[in-house]
Amino acid sequence: MHQLIASRFLDDQLIVCPGSTAGIKVPLREFTDLERTTEAGEAAPAWLIKAARQRWVLDLAPGCPARDFLLVRPEADPQYSRASWEINLGCNYDCEHCYLGLKRFEGLDWEGKSRLLHIMRDAGVLWLQITGGEPTIDPLFLRAYTLAHELGMMITVSTNGSRLWKPEILDALTRMPAYRVVVSVYGATAASYDGLTRRRGSFAKFQKGMAAALEAGIPMRLNLVVTEHSADEEAQMVAMAENWGLEHHSYVNMSPTIYGGAESLPAQSAQHLRQRKVFSGCNAGHTFFHSDPHGIASICKVGRDPNVDLMAEGVEGLQRLGAIADSLMLRTGGCSGCQLSGSCGVCRPTAKIYQEAKAPLASYCQHGQKREEVPA
């Protein structure tokens, strides 16, 4: 099983290591030499052995074949370096703030999931986020995770942490390290946590999962979700993350559902509502895409329509996403008559779902009431 991955990444060539956020850029000549070396079964070059020791503390034997530890990714056209995938929309929680709305447990069978992951590989996806719903409750999660790793993807798993204690999940995350496991935190006490998830005992499951993952040394980051239930516990949540020595970020703005529903908005802590960071463009649809549980690709999790059916069109369908992305950024609908649209700093698909939810203008419009700015 590979320990390192060599891949083209936009205009660069990278070598990365599963389980590590560190990487190195290599010149094109050295990269093509690695392609030839692994193809021929030749010994790894001395510079790679040295770099692996310095960057990742990997003790690789001089003279060992490069293919024994290195996976060289094939060139892709089109090249989408990152993707996110909702493996399903089902969840073992029923969180009040959830942007998914209807959490139906449905999606592709194993043949479909395998084909989708191969399409992602062929599209050049190096960084893959597996999310849900709760991805770890999908009966095919471990098979999908294993295949994504075997195809040479740096995997991020977005989870509520409730099942990280399970031996089979810990085993997979230890043998095939994720780039990162991102755990959402919904409170610092059982009262707030269980209140938001509407599942008694969910805080205890979170604590059990975190304890097991920390003991196993799983690389993690915490998303601290601050809602009405935990409005007075943000400092406690931050302290919890710092006591664990984990990178963390507070998410304070609740979003309408992906269907434009407002049922998630009452969970918003009014005192924590912040102005979103000014939108200055992004690579959604151009070098990044999102896939739902059925293999329907969109520019991102928010701008889901128009879309591309990857199961019907394959990797070639992604050629259309760039034009879709550009069209979705046009000021239409509720913003079409705005006199200040020329200076607007809001992502248009984001504004659209707020407008569909009939949310107060100040909750998403940059020209509304002035608030402290936050990244998301």
Rank of each mutant, 00 (worst) to 15 (best):
D194Y: 04
P219K: 03
L117A: 14
I218K: 06
M210A: 09
G217T: 09
W110I: 10
M176F: 13
V185G: 00
L128G: 00
I137H: 09
G124F: 06
Y186Q: 14
S192Q: 05
T156A: 14
R198W: 08
A216C: 13
R198I: 06
L222C: 08
D138V: 04
T159I: 06
T174L: 10
A212P: 12
V225L: 14
V185T: 05
E228N: 11
A123H: 09
P167L: 07
H118L: 10
I155Q: 03
L151K: 04
G209V: 01
G217H: 10
P219N: 06
W110V: 10
M120F: 11
P177E: 00
T227N: 07
P219D: 01
V125E: 03
P135A: 09
P139Y: 00
L117C: 08
V157W: 00
A123T: 09
V181Q: 04
H118D: 13
K103I: 04
R121W: 02
E111L: 13
V182I: 11
T189V: 10
Q129K: 12
G217P: 12
V125K: 09
T136N: 08
H149T: 11
R199Q: 12
A172G: 12
H149N: 14
S230E: 04
D109V: 03
W110Y: 13
L170T: 02
